[in-house]
Computed example of a mutant assay.
Amino acid sequence: MNRTNDYVLELEQNRILSIDILRAIVMILMVLDHTRSSWNGGTGIDPTDIVNTYPALFFTRWITHFCAPIFVILTGMSAFISKKYHSKSNKLCFSLLFKRGLLLILLELTVLSIFWGGTVLQVIWVIGVSMIILSILQFFPSRLVGLLGLLIISFHNLIPEFQSSDLFSNLLLSILHQSRVIKISSQYEIMVLYPLIPWIGVMAFGYSLGEIFFWKQSSRVKFLKITGLIFIALFIILRIFNIYGNPVPFQVQDSFVFTIISFLNLEKYPPSFLYLLMTIGPMFLMLIFLERFKPQENNPFIIFGRTPLFFYIVHLFLILFVSATFRDILGYDTIHFSLSLIYTYIVWVIMLVLLYPISKYYYNLKFIKKLRWTKYL
C-alpha cells in the first residue's frame, strides 16, 4: 500500500475524515463569499442591510457565515487530536502552536495585505493569535480549556463599547473586542475585522471538543446530537424573545421572507453570542452526518480539507487575478463589479475547478513527497 493510502487509512481509523470534509465545505463556501465581494461588490449593497438587500443576496452572504466559526473551531479540534494521537508533549505542542501562530500573523500582515489592499486583520490573523494563546492553554486540562472557551463565547457580549481619544487605547480596544478602522496616520490605517476575544474562546472550545474523537462512536454521536440541538434551541429561544446575545434585535417585517432575514441577520464583527450559536450548533449535527462518508484520496473534499492554508492563499490571489483580467476586458475602473449575482455563482464554480489541480499538486508535495517546508502551509 502506498503512502497516500496509508494516510487515508490513518484518517479513517481515527475517525477524523469528517473534520477534513467539513473543513473543505466551509472553504468552498469561503470562495463563494470572496467571489461575491469581488464580482458583486460594485453594487454598493450590503447583503446584510435589511433595508436594501434582497433574499438571494442575503442568503448568499448568510450561508458563508458558517465559514469562520467552523474553521476556527476545527483548528482547535485538530490541535487536540494531533497532540493526543501523536503523544506530543506539552513543550512540543507549545513550540508548534506558537511558531505556527507567528507564521499566520506574519502572512496576514504581509502577503495577504496585498490582496486586501492594506492592513486588514482578518481570520488568518485571529487564528494565528488564538494558536499562540492555545499554546499556553494546552498546558491545562482540556475540559478546563473548553469551559473557559465556552464562558468567553457566552458572555463576551457583556463587554461594553469604549471610545478613547488615545490612539494606542483605541487600537488595543479594537484588537481585543471592537471591530473598527484605526487611523494610524494620514496615510496609514488598520482595519480590525476580527477582534481577538470571541475567537480565542471559539478555538479554546474547539480544542476541548477534540477529545470526543477518541470516544466510542455511539458516545460521540450522542454528545454531538445533544450539544447541537441545545445550541440551536438556545439560539432560537434567545433570538425570538430578544433576551440576549446580539446588538440588533429581531423584528417582524412586512413579509415572511424578510422576517426570516431579520431573524438570521446577526452580528459578525465581532461575532455575537447568537451568531456563534447559529453557526456552531448545526456544525455538531453536520459532523454526525459526515462520518458516513469515506471519500477516496483524490476527492476534492480530501484535497481541499487537508491543504487549508495553501488553499486560502491561492484562492485569494486567483480571485484577484481573474477579477483584474475581466475588469480590463470589460473596461471596469475598479476591481469590484456590479454584475448580476448569477455571475458570482458561475465564477465561483470556475474558481473551484481551477483550485482543484493546484491544491492537488500541493497535496502530493505535502503528503506523498513529504517535502519538509510544506508542514508550514
Rank of each mutant, 00 (worst) to 15 (best):
S255I: 10
L107F: 10
C93S: 15
I124C: 05
I243N: 02
R306I: 05
F263L: 09
F140Q: 08
F140S: 08
L224Q: 15
P249W: 09
S185D: 12
L229V: 13
L167E: 02
F301S: 07
M1Q: 13
V181A: 07
E10K: 14
A56F: 12
L74G: 04
F235C: 02
I21K: 03
I197G: 01
Q251H: 12
G210Y: 04
P195R: 07
K294D: 01
I236Q: 00
L22M: 15
T344N: 03
G331Y: 09
S185V: 07
D166F: 10
G44C: 02
F250I: 09
I182K: 04
K83T: 11
D333A: 03
F59V: 03
L17M: 14
G245R: 06
L112I: 15
F258Y: 15
L106N: 05
F231Q: 05
L377R: 00
P357E: 05
L107M: 15
N170M: 12
T53Q: 03
R220K: 14
K268Q: 12
K375C: 01
E291T: 10
F326I: 13
M131P: 00
T110S: 15
I302N: 11
E267Y: 08
L264C: 15
G210M: 06
T325L: 15
P282I: 05
I303D: 04
F321H: 06
I50E: 02
V347F: 14
R36S: 13
F289T: 07
I105Y: 05
Y312D: 09
D33A: 14
V192W: 03
S154L: 14
E161N: 10
S38K: 11
I182P: 06
K370R: 15
L290C: 08
I159C: 04
M191E: 13
F321K: 03
Y269A: 12
K84P: 00
L150S: 12
G76K: 09
F263Y: 13
G331N: 08
I261W: 10
S186A: 13
L150P: 02
I124G: 00
M278H: 06
G117M: 09
E267I: 00
G281Q: 06
I21M: 15
A79K: 03
I159D: 02
L109R: 00
I346C: 04
L320M: 15
D49P: 02
G117N: 08
E108S: 13
Y362L: 00
Q187H: 11
V349H: 01
W199M: 06
I226S: 06
S135E: 08
D33N: 14
F337G: 02
I197H: 01
F66T: 07
L320E: 10
L264A: 13
L137M: 13
G210R: 07
N14G: 02
L104G: 01
R143T: 06
F94D: 01
K222E: 11
L318T: 12
L229M: 14
F273A: 02
L102N: 08
S37Q: 13
K222T: 08
E211V: 11
W125D: 11
I132W: 10
K369E: 14
N364Q: 12
K216M: 07
S130R: 05
I25S: 12
L150W: 07
L109N: 00
E161K: 10
F80W: 15
F301Y: 10
W62V: 03
L29M: 15
F140L: 15
P69A: 00
V126C: 07
I153H: 03
A24M: 08
L290H: 05
I350V: 14
I236M: 14
I73Q: 01
F98Y: 13
I212P: 01
L355K: 05
L121S: 11
I240M: 12
G281C: 04
